[in-house]
Simulated assay, not measured.
Amino acid sequence: MYQHHWKNRLLQTLRPIQLRIKQLKSWVRPQPLTMTTGLLQGTSDQIRMLSLGSSNLLQQAFFDAASTRSEVIGYVKPLMAGRLLRQYRDQADLILLPLTPFSDAAPPDALTVPDYLDATIVFRQSGEAWEKDIREMLRRRLKKALKGGYRFERSQHPDDYVWFYRHMLKPYVQQRHSYAAYVEPEEEFCADTDMAVLEFVHLQDQRVGGVHMKLSSRNPYAYFNKIGLCPAASADVQIMRELNCLIYQRMVQLARSEGHHGLHLGITPPILNNGITWYKSGWGAEFVPNLTHQRYQLHFTNSRAAHIRQHAAPLVILEQQRLTGVVWGEAEEAAAKIAEAGAWRFTGLNAIHCHSIQTGKRIKTSETV
């Protein structure tokens, strides 16, 4: 069983230093400069977004699904990013640049955003108490699923990795994410067995789902890596929901049984009304800015800014190093906009603010979450 002894505590103490060093190195290494073109969501208007080094998760806040095309137009060191804003402001509607100590002063409507959000279930209470605190809808689904005759079985053969990848993981990711689907190469996934657990879910002696986890003795948190469902299960909404509930419960049980202090649930885009964030928060996940400390400035560069903000998804930004939700509207509708966005709040979100569509500046009406 995993024990959080002095070596592990030392590793965790050193981890922030390692991440900072990695961040500093990234500032002096050339990063891909990418121009993305597509339709502004909810419209037939084409917009362009220039990004330097970002994972581009933020695209989901502005672009209509399946309309984007991206092209790497060069490589630039983040320390030289200031000139990009001047050079490309007439060619792009949005510019996303790494934030460094040498970045130019930001205009009033620029926003500081994390590259993504990290989600973690921290074990502060017993398993029984945790299950009582999860979202009521999930509790009902879990209770029903536990009566459905499902059972878990630990993989005992290396060939199971190939089977899981081909028959569950890849089809499920492609079904969920369509044009944006990305699955690591089969060889890389099948080689990722160090301190890993692969379990299948059976229903009537058929494999219908599976989960791959990392239970590293070098980390106080277990890490959820991959979930896969067979095509028939993912096509059945009820079975898909039941399997996801059972798998989440199983991941927590495995992490606890190995002595971990929490379960890392992966990353989500910094978008407030994101369904993945909402689902994970229902299981008690807490969210923080990405632990690699990469921060970006989002610039609206031209007269189309108001039109873009009007159709953009609510964002999660950083204000004084704390996560804050941003919606766009004007003074007479600010309270309603904030109240509507409140349905998407999550643990770790400090407040929700309304910014002016026209100026991009914050309207004073705000709500502490």
Rank of each mutant, 00 (worst) to 15 (best):
V316P: 00
Y161F: 11
H212C: 00
A313V: 00
S70Q: 15
L11S: 09
P32Q: 12
P185Q: 10
T100I: 03
K7D: 04
H299I: 09
L169S: 04
R141W: 04
M49Q: 11
K214L: 10
G148P: 03
N290C: 14
D194S: 10
D205Q: 12
D133I: 00
D93V: 02
I267A: 05
P114Q: 07
P185K: 04
M195Y: 07
I17L: 15
V197E: 15
V201P: 07
P289L: 11
A222F: 06
C354P: 02
Y223T: 10
S126E: 07
N8H: 06
P220E: 15
V288R: 15
F189S: 03
M137P: 00
T368L: 14
Q156M: 09
S54N: 14
K144P: 00
R20A: 10
A331V: 06
L272V: 09
L19G: 02
G74E: 07
L19Q: 14
H157V: 08
N302G: 07
T347H: 15
V162I: 09
L117H: 00
R140C: 00
S67T: 12
R151W: 06
A285F: 05
P185R: 14
E258F: 10
I47Q: 08
V173R: 15
R207G: 06
F287T: 09
H355F: 10
Y150R: 12
A180Y: 05
T13A: 15
Y88S: 04
G329C: 05
I338Y: 00
K132Y: 04
A129T: 05
I247W: 02
H264D: 08
F346R: 02
K280C: 07
E258N: 11
E186I: 09
L243Q: 03
K337Q: 10
W283A: 01
L215F: 03
M35P: 02
S155Y: 00
L229K: 07
M137Q: 12
Y248W: 09
L198C: 03
F164Y: 02
I357G: 00
L10C: 08
V211Q: 15
L39N: 07
K170C: 02
S67Q: 04
P269E: 11
F224I: 01
T193V: 10
E340K: 13
E340R: 04
W328K: 00
L39Y: 07
P269G: 11
S70C: 06
W130L: 13
Y248H: 14
S70L: 11
V72G: 09
P158V: 01
N350T: 08
A351C: 08
K77T: 08
T193I: 08
V201I: 13
G82T: 09
I21V: 13
F189W: 05
A339Q: 13
I271V: 14
N274Y: 04
L198Q: 04
F189R: 11
K214V: 02
N56V: 03
A312S: 12
A81R: 13
F152R: 12
W328D: 01
Q249S: 10
W163F: 12
D160Y: 10
N274K: 01
H167P: 01
R218G: 14
A335P: 00
A255I: 02
E333S: 06
